[in-house]
């Protein structure tokens, strides 16, 4: 049963347009039902947990409580790694300590029982049922594309919150990407940090983080990087050219969301997959790869 409550998060209405478009294309293709939580709010991201524990727990809790109030009894699908992490933290806290759960209810002025689980899109697409549904819809192949699957921090860490996926060498995205015929490469920076919002408020300190990610991807033969987070994607895609200019590097690696590659192989047009919306040109790499595969 591919039915979820859905928390898109703020970025999907703004810079993460490629993620948003490809998610809706793929969901429709495979018959996945995403029920958007009514009147959801920002999860608070890094800023809320920088400021205070209860602020960090309460902002996601309102969304979780609204989903519960819908009465669908579904798990909650979250495409952004940061939203996912903050919402999982709240579920974890409410389940671990009854007094904390009650305090959360008091602050958000709503009942919240913490019954539903929160799932990242990676966790969802790695489910056998969803993998099978995707496989059946593959019309085209991206064979000859060498993909560095970049997981970032928060889908993997901290391990007692994310539960399950390896923190050093996760394979979920690699398995999903393999469905497209592309080759997931072995590399070392799968769960290294992109710097998140420090790319805005401490750019000089944080830019080297992105450069190292590109450097390692390139050294291991990547012709594409694939992400599962709006901010990881924006940070890499928007700053690749800047790094090339500043550091004299010649990185030539488009950065896609994993759902974009799925969408392309399920027959999406460039527009439906958002391939013309990248900062670093991303259309030609896909087009050339498809041609080479004879599609």
């Amino acid at each position: 049963m591919m039915k979820y409550s859905y928390f898109p998060g703020c970025s999907l209405d703004a810079t993460a347009v490629t993620y948003k478009r490809s998610i809706s294309f793929v969901a429709e293709k495979i018959g996945m039902e995403l029920n958007e939580i009514p009147d959801w709010n920002c999860c608070g991201a890094t800023c809320a947990h920088s400021r205070g524990k209860w602020l960090a727990l309460a902002l996601p809790a309102r969304n979780l409580a609204l989903a519960e109030r819908e009465g669908l009894g579904l798990d909650i699908a979250v495409p952004c790694a940061s939203c996912y992490s903050r919402m999982k933290h709240t579920v974890h806290a409410a389940r671990k300590d009854e007094a904390d759960r009650k305090k959360i209810e008091e602050i958000i002025e709503m009942p919240y029982l913490a019954k539903s689980d929160v799932l990242s899109f990676l966790e969802i697409f790695a489910l056998p049922e969803v993998m099978k549904a995707c496989k059946e819809k593959m019309e085209r192949s991206l064979a000859s594309l060498n993909v560095a699957c970049y997981y970032g921090c928060l889908t993997a860490r901290p391990r007692e919150i994310t539960g399950g996926i390896s923190t050093e060498n996760p394979m979920e995205m690699d398995d999903i990407i393999a469905l497209t015929g592309a080759k997931p490469i072995e590399w070392d920076f799968k769960t290294e940090c992109c710097g998140a919002s420090h790319q805005v408020d401490a750019p000089e300190a944080a830019l080297p983080l992105i450069e190292r990610i590109f450097r390692n991807a390139k050294a291991n033969g990547a012709t594409a990087i694939v992400t599962a987070c709006p901010l990881c994607n924006l940070n890499l895609d928007m700053r690749e050219e800047e790094i090339n200019k500043k550091s004299g590097t010649a990185f030539d690696i488009p950065v896609y969301q994993f759902t974009q590659l799925l969408a392309v192989c399920m027959g999406a047009t460039a527009n439906e997959a958002g391939l013309h919306k990248h900062f670093y040109p991303a259309y030609d790499r896909i087009n050339d790869t498809l041609r080479r595969a004879g599609a």
């Binding site: 009147d39 709010n41 309460a58 902002l59 008091e106 958000i108």
Partner: peptide, 30 residues
């Protein structure tokens, strides 16, 4: 050009509810 930023605002309907929540949470934090 790519409509990643648009002039319209995506806000919640229950703004007052979110404001009360933040006030109560920060009081608890402080």
């Amino acid at each position: 050009r790519h409509e990643m930023v648009k002039p319209e605002i995506h806000g919640v309907k229950d703004k007052e509810g979110v404001r009360r929540l933040m006030k109560a949470a920060l009081e608890e934090d402080d």
